[in-house]
Amino acid sequence: MTPSRLDLQALALGYEGRAFMRGIDLRVDASEIVAILGPSGSGKSTLLSAIAGVVPPLDGRILIDGRDVTRAPIHERDVGLIFQEPLLFPHLDVASNIAYGLRRHGQTRKAALLRATELLEWLGLGGYERRRVDELSGGQAQRVALARALAPRPAVLCLDEPFSALDADLRQRLAVEVSAMLRESGVAAIHVTHDPTEARTVADRVIELSALGEAL
């Protein structure tokens, strides 16, 4: 049996040594989108931060393609991260933002920018390469953030309420769009939200956070 893309084993999460959740088990396969539902403040973001390596888990293991990355530094994990706000680098233009991760993975600037152009076309943002990021609308900026995260082809993508800063109409449209793109890219995606409709639109599987492990 080939290992899952992402495999969380008995993960415990907490702040300053005090656990608020333990025994989290979850497997996500390639091209699969899992939505995790939970009210705000329930620890969804902490889970994503732990997978990406921003905060260390208190206990348990995180495997990516069978490799134990529990203690690996962020930049060696192969995990992409998307926040509520796009957090585009303000000093770089649109194409350079998307090319950033490719450059860090050893591509030449020319190749990286070429790939960025392709991704922008794919997103329906062709011609935006040289735009300043503060000229983008909220939806455009979030799409660019998605392209930036997907460009280095991460094994796992964590999306932390990526649409909650957008208005309802746009949120629905983008959810459909992003879900299609994620499937096409082959990434294993974890999408965290408090909105059940959005979760069902985007994901193949919807799981309540409370069902993942034992809340303390």
Binding site: P73, I74, H75, F89, Y100, R104, R148, A151
Partner: peptide
Amino acid sequence: TRMSAVAATLGARPTRAFWT
């Protein structure tokens, strides 16, 4: 500060992420 987390998930080493 989340900016440096984003840079790191894109493959930037800590020093690189700091400067980004």
